[in-house]
């Protein structure tokens, strides 16, 4: 579904990633790790088409990113749920509407979806916060709201960038739990994190592969973590 074929990415200053190839298979669970500034966020952006590689080919659901127009990108993002480290919301709308926003903008806002929305909010533990405005949420609540928003369209892939960056250990375990559950429902998951403890704790619950960015290259890390 997401295929990177020998891609490179350089900013004005120099090359950040090179000779990177990856094929995200349906139902797989990947961690992406590496030191700060190694290009984890850039890698994720390449995976959902926010950036175009400077060399090589990225295919999203069988389509070359370079040949996709802006509407194609919009449609692709409905199939890829993204959770950012600093997740942003529409601050004037309550959590309920923010989480339902992907349905709203794709004209799939129906009554049936509203009961799903309630279930979803309960699942991420925000049932009681549905009417709160995003600025009133704590860091962990924001991350969970972002996760709920990322999965409401029932996407095939969920990409998460440091989803546990701003939350305590207990909360990060809870978020991980939610992602593992999604994986068990058949979703493809890719989590960028520098938190090795998180990766270790995940290994008890799920068959996860660990990718490491090191020296501009992407490597498959061993099981020795």
């Amino acid at each position: 579904m997401i295929e990177l074929d020998n891609i490179a990415y350089s900013y004005g200053g120099g090359e950040l990633l090179s000779e990177v190839s990856l094929k995200l298979a349906p139902g797989s669970f990947h961690f992406l790790t590496g030191p700060s500034g190694s290009g984890k966020t850039t890698f994720l952006k390449l995976c959902y088409g926010a950036l175009t590689p400077t060399a090589g080919r990225v295919q999203l659901f069988g389509k070359d990113v370079r040949e996709m127009d802006r509407d194609d990108h919009a449609l692709a993002r409905r199939q890829i749920g993204v959770v950012h480290q600093d997740c942003q919301f529409l601050d004037h709308l309550p959590v309920r509407e923010n989480v339902a926003l992907p349905l709203t903008v794709s004209d799939r806002d129906s009554l049936e979806q509203h009961s799903n929305l309630k279930e979803l909010l309960t699942w991420v533990g925000l049932g009681h916060r549905a009417s709160a405005l995003p600025p009133e949420l704590s860091g962990g609540e924001r991350q969970r709201a972002a996760l709920a928003r990322a999965v409401i369209m029932s996407p095939d892939v969920v990409l998460a960038d440091e989803p546990t960056g701003n939350v305590d250990w207990e909360m990060s375990q809870r978020l991980l739990q939610l992602l593992v559950e999604l994986n068990k429902m058949g979703k493809t998951i890719l989590i960028a994190t520098h938190d090795l403890n998180l990766i270790r704790s995940a290994k008890h619950h799920v068959q996860a592969r660990v990718l490491r960015i090191s020296g501009r290259k992407l490597q498959l890390a061993g099981a020795d973590l």
Binding site: R70, D71, A74, L75, A76, R77, R78, V82, H84, Q88, F89, L90, L101, P102, V105, S106, R149, M153
Partner: peptide
């Protein structure tokens, strides 16, 4: 600008 970037991220078309 922030509203627009959020909308783009969650898959809103430009026309919307």
């Amino acid at each position: 600008a922030q509203v627009i970037s959020v909308l783009r991220l969650i898959g809103a078309r430009d026309s919307y």
